[in-house]
């Protein structure tokens, strides 16, 4: 057995401003989470398979029976499926955080001379990357089933920008859920219990006009509908309203409120 030379690790630390260290820690954590995407079958499936499955089911099973007025169902549906995919992708932070907390690796991170909240940043950034991949896949799948966007470059940039901010907002909420739930099973259920109702009681798959009053009031005023309506306007030119601004306000509001809560929860959990 050879022995390692003992040097004080403090001396080996290079001098760097705190904020740069934070960025570098967060980047290491992001790399870790991104490796999880490509190595976990479960995650790969949800990145590529589920969005396509939903697209096909809605387009061909339900699509024929839904009246979307002037625009084709494929064009109507796209924004809904797109936002749903982003929401589910961003929900992975819940599951991944719950797994980390259960496996004890969080204790190791906490005992390192880094700011442990870099772990949150890593999971959230990985969600963004996962959603970017899913986003491209869903656009290609949409084009195959008859989605014909009329958007120009500027509109596409708006769509991408809002998609990123929306994904970030859902990830922040997911982080809170991941820190609150007590088990992995519970973490997996939150996606179904929270995100399914939100995407169904919205303008994702059917126009809201046919819903009963109470549902319709909810559907028309919840953030996902605003995100979908704004994207629909940009992508296929449905009549524009102030949905984009409301969507942006919702997303930024969620981020500003939930990020500090998540960071605080992460600090106090287990203490």
């Amino acid at each position: 057995m050879t022995t390692l030379a003992i040097e004080s690790n403090i001396q080996t630390q290079q001098r760097k401003p705190k904020i740069l260290w934070y960025v570098s820690d967060a980047w290491i954590m992001t790399q870790r989470s991104v490796r999880h995407i490509t190595r976990s079958m479960d995650q790969l499936m949800s990145v590529a398979m589920f969005p396509i499955m939903f697209m096909l089911l809605n387009r061909y099973v339900l699509g024929g029976a839904i009246d979307t007025g002037d625009i084709s169902y494929a064009n109507y549906l796209f924004a809904g499926i797109f936002v749903q995919t982003l929401a589910f992708g961003a929900n992975y932070t819940t599951i991944n955080l719950a797994v980390d907390l259960q496996q004890g690796i969080v204790d190791r991170f906490r005992s390192l001379p880094m700011n442990p909240s870099a772990l949150l940043v890593g999971h959230i950034t990985a969600d963004l990357i996962r959603n970017a991949i899913s986003g491209v896949i869903i656009i290609l799948a949409g084009l195959l089933v008859g989605f014909r966007p009329t958007a120009g470059l500027i509109e596409w940039l708006y769509v991408i920008g809002l998609a990123l901010i929306f994904s970030l907002a859902i990830s922040c909420l997911s982080a809170i859920l991941g820190l609150v739930v007590k088990s992995l099973e519970a973490a997996q259920w939150t996606g179904f219990v929270v995100i399914f109702p939100l995407t169904f009681i919205s303008s994702a798959f059917v126009p809201t006009q046919t819903m009963p009053t109470v549902l319709r009031a909810f559907a028309e005023n919840q953030p996902l509908t605003h995100v979908m309506n704004a994207m629909r306007t940009w992508l296929v030119g449905t009549p524009s309203d102030n949905s984009a601004w409301i969507a942006l306000a919702w997303c930024l509001g969620i981020i500003i409120i939930s990020l500090p809560i998540a960071a605080w929860l992460f600090r106090v959990r287990g203490k």
């Binding site: 630390q13 870790r32 490796r35 999880h36 496996q103 690796i105 390192l112 001379p113 880094m114």
Partner: peptide
């Protein structure tokens, strides 16, 4: 406290980098 999806070496190097 190991990351099951990473290799042994990746686990080790991740921690080394986090120790700066």
């Amino acid at each position: 406290a190991v990351d099951e999806y990473l290799t042994g070496r990746e686990n080790l190097e991740m921690i080394g980098l986090l120790y700066r």
